[in-house]
Amino acid sequence: MDLAGSSARVWSLGSGDAVGYLAGIGGLPRWPQVLDQLATQRRVVAPSLPGFPGGAVFRQLDSQLDWLLAARDLLVASGLEGADLVGVSIGAALAADVAAVWPGLVRRLVLISPLGVFDERQPTADIFAQPPGQLGRLLCADGTRFDEHVTVADGGDPVEWSVQSVRAMESAARLLWPLGDTGLASRLERIPCPALLLFGSDDRVLPAGMRDVFAQAIAGSRVQVVQRAGHLVDLDDPETVAGLILDHIDAAGH
């Protein structure tokens, strides 16, 4: 898809009403199992955020407003205006902001381990200051899940896969550096649509207390905790996550 002079990859599978999917830290270097699960009942649409694998250029995005407009344009260009939307981690930070700023853009919302808010009393982990090889263990309860997700595919160029991973982390840093505070906290109360908040019981990035911060700020939201799952809940337990997402977005009678 062309997007403001740059191209972005949009993955899609299944039929029926669309549900958008904004992936978490690391993005989607390969097709994840959770999208297969969602595609059994819906047409799942996964556009790549700028800088993430398949994503458009990102080095012109200097501010939170730039990022917000880019995310909104990407969703609209992907045919997701008025659709249900799932966001994970950094994707959830943008999904929440889009839902808050453009009422009607998102029908029903699922935020999985959302970033975007920082609390000095319960700081999130610094995903950008990890020893080499330790990121997987930080992001997933089973670190091999993340490592396998980002490991070079058969026939792929290891150096270019490495560059792709570096670029994805730089893009995340561009939005989240240094604390991961995008100013979202002051806008959460504007979210008008039904929201499901999903967290992993073993999230090593978001302290458990952050669940209440989001739940209390978003009126009518519901919290569910997936057991034995880490920050990227969708990689740790795709079947449970897909089931909870479908329950939430189909609750209105689809």
């Binding site: 950008f128 200051a129 490495s162 560059v163 570096v166 982390m169 840093a173 561009r174």
Partner: peptide, 11 residues
């Protein structure tokens, strides 16, 4: 820190 080294430098 991510972005400190350019992609060309990584290569």
């Amino acid at each position: 820190p991510p972005g400190y080294a350019t992609e060309s430098a990584v290569r």
